[in-house]
């Protein structure tokens, strides 16, 4: 499909074709650099294995059922972490937004929690919750909680007065104002918090698996590297990228904001 736009100069530009060919060119450049590095460049296969070796490893990897179990565990951790962060974040944001004093007290805390490098605290999570799935889920949930709660508060507090005026003029109840006006007006902001949360969850789960775990794709990467099976390690990274990108895309699709 090609969309054409006419520039002021009158030249027809096939827009999406240009963009896609540029993206393709970038991919070609990266792959060419990879091939060059592993052949002429003489980079050690312990640092960067050849493309062929990685692909071979990838295809033998994806037919092994165990790897899908591990992928399933990683996805489960991401979804569970997100579900907890979403439920708690929305509830806390909603409750806090009802009180002006609480909002003023809590807002800087959430903004700060939003920015804080939680990777620093992961060793504590391991200590508290152990090396199993729970530590990944909890860790990801804590990371995603802040942007979700913060955006929920911001969204609910910045509802345009003209919408509230309609509620008042037509005699809306408190519950109706919450559900039909505030939640609707805040929805784009809340959804954006949820999208940020969903992407944080994927990052934190992978990070946590790499830093210390006995299950999941992150653990597979870590163990392949430690056995110096570098091609396997790369292949698992590739699989992890595919899985995560698909998951993020699905989340983004489900959490897109419509009509605004």
């Amino acid at each position: 499909m090609t969309t054409t736009t006419i520039r002021p100069g009158g030249r027809r530009v096939p827009r999406s074709m240009t963009i896609w060919s540029m993206r393709l060119a970038l991919l070609v450049v990266v792959l060419a650099a990879w091939v060059f590095a592993t052949t002429v460049g003489g980079v050690s296969p312990l640092i960067l294995p050849g493309i062929a070796a990685v692909l071979e490893s990838f295809f033998s990897l994806v037919v092994r059922p165990e790897i899908w179990t591990q992928a399933g565990i990683t996805v489960l951790e991401m979804l569970a972490g997100f579900a907890i962060a979403a439920v708690v974040g929305l509830a806390v944001g909603f409750l806090l937004s009802r009180s002006r004093v609480l909002v003023r007290a809590a807002e800087p805390l959430f903004a700060w929690g939003y920015m804080f490098p939680f990777a620093l605290l992961y060793p504590l999570f391991l200590l508290w919750v152990g090396v199993g799935l729970e530590s990944k889920i909890l860790y990801a949930a804590v990371g995603a909680f802040f942007p979700i709660a913060y955006n929920t508060i911001r969204g609910l507090r910045s509802v345009d007065r003209k919408y509230l005026q309609v509620g008042k003029a037509y005699g809306a109840s408190g519950l109706q104002i919450d559900l039909n006006i505030k939640l609707g007006a805040a929805r784009p902001m809340i959804l954006s918090g949820l999208r940020i949360g969903s992407s944080i969850v994927t990052i934190y789960v992978v990070l946590a698996e790499l830093l210390g775990s006995n299950l999941g794709l992150g653990h597979e990467i870590e163990s392949a590297s430690s056995r110096l099976q570098i091609a396997d390690s790369y292949a698992t990274v590739l699989l992890l990228i595919v899985v995560t990108v698909i998951l993020q895309r699905i989340m983004e699709y489900l959490l897109r904001s419509r009509h605004e």
Binding site: K168, A169, Y170, G171, R187
Partner: peptide, 19 residues
């Protein structure tokens, strides 16, 4: 306000964009 007696039409329409 009793909208069944007197109902408002505001300057900026005030429609809810999410509905």
């Amino acid at each position: 306000p009793n909208p069944r007696n007197a109902a408002f039409v505001f300057q900026d329409y005030s429609l809810f964009p999410w509905k």
